[in-house]
Write a protein that binds this DNA or RNA. Structure first.
Lengths: 108, 108
DNA sequence: CTTTCATATAACCATTAGGTTATATATAAT
DNA sequence: ATTATATATAACCTAATGGTTATATGAAAG
C-alpha cells in the first residue's frame, strides 16, 4: 500500500530520510537543514507520513519525526522483488536466503 | 542520471517493462495489451526512453522497443544502495558480496 | 497577559503527469 | 493511386508536485 516510489522519488525527501536515520528530529531541525521554506518541508513530511515512511509524535510545541523502518523495509522488498525479476538479478535469490534465514556469513 | 524512481513510479510503465522483459515488442503490441489510448502509451514509452530504461528501433512502419538492462541495473543498484543504507539491512553487505563476486551458493 | 517560537494552513503559481480525442504522417498492401 | 495500418503530434483536460508568501494557531516563556 505505501508507495515507496512516490515517497523516495524526491531528493529532498531522500535527504530528510537520511537525516532521520541518524535519529528522530523535530520539524524545526529538519527545516533548518534545508534552504527551503517551512511549508515546503512540511509538505514533504506530509507525503512521507501519507506513505507511512515516517511517523510523527508530539512534544509540547514540537513535532518529532522518526523513520518507520518497517514500512520502508516492506517497500524496499517489493522494489527489489519487482526490479530483480526484471533483471534476473542474483540479489533476488540472495534476498530469499536472507528472508529464510539461510544465509551464513562465513567470514566472521 | 537516469531517474529510476520516475521511470518505475507508474504501474503502467512497470507493466510495460515486464512485457519487454519477455522480449522486444512493437508499439502496437504494447498498446493492445492495455485498455488505454495509443498516445497515452506513447507518453509512457517516451518517459522510459528519456530515462534510458528502454530503447527504440525502427522496422518499416513499426517501432520496436526493448528493455535496457544496463541502465536498469545501474539505477537499481543506486536505489538498493540508498535504501539499504537507510535500513542497515543485511542486504547491503550481501550486495557487496555479490558485486565483489565473493558469494558462494553452497547449496547447489 | 503578552510575546515568542514552532507549527499549520491558505492562497497562489508554474510545471509535470496521465489521460483524452482528433488529426497528420509514413510505410505497406491492394 | 488508393486504402489501410502504425505511429506521431497537437490541443485539451484534470490532478498532483514542488515551491512561494502571508497568516493563523498553539504552546512556552517573560
Amino acid at each position: 500500500m505505501p508507495n515507496v516510489y512516490r515517497a523516495l522519488g524526491d531528493p529532498t525527501r531522500r535527504h530528510i530520510l537520511s537525516m532521520l536515520k541518524q535519529g528522530s528530529k523535530t520539524q524545526k531541525e529538519i527545516v533548518e537543514a534545508f534552504d527551503m521554506s517551512q511549508p515546503a518541508i512540511k509538505k514533504h513530511l506530509n507525503i512521507l507520513l501519507e506513505e507511512r515512511i515516517i511517523s510523527e509524535s508530539l512534544n509540547g510545541k514540537y513535532r518529532i519525526y522518526s523513520i518507520n523502518l518497517n514500512t520502508l523495509q516492506i517497500g524496499y522488498r517489493e522494489m527489489i522483488q519487482y526490479i530483480g525479476e526484471l533483471l534476473d538479478d542474483q540479489l533476488v535469490s540472495l534476498k530469499n536466503y536472507v528472508e529464510k534465514g539461510e544465509f551464513r556469513d562465513e567470514e566472521n
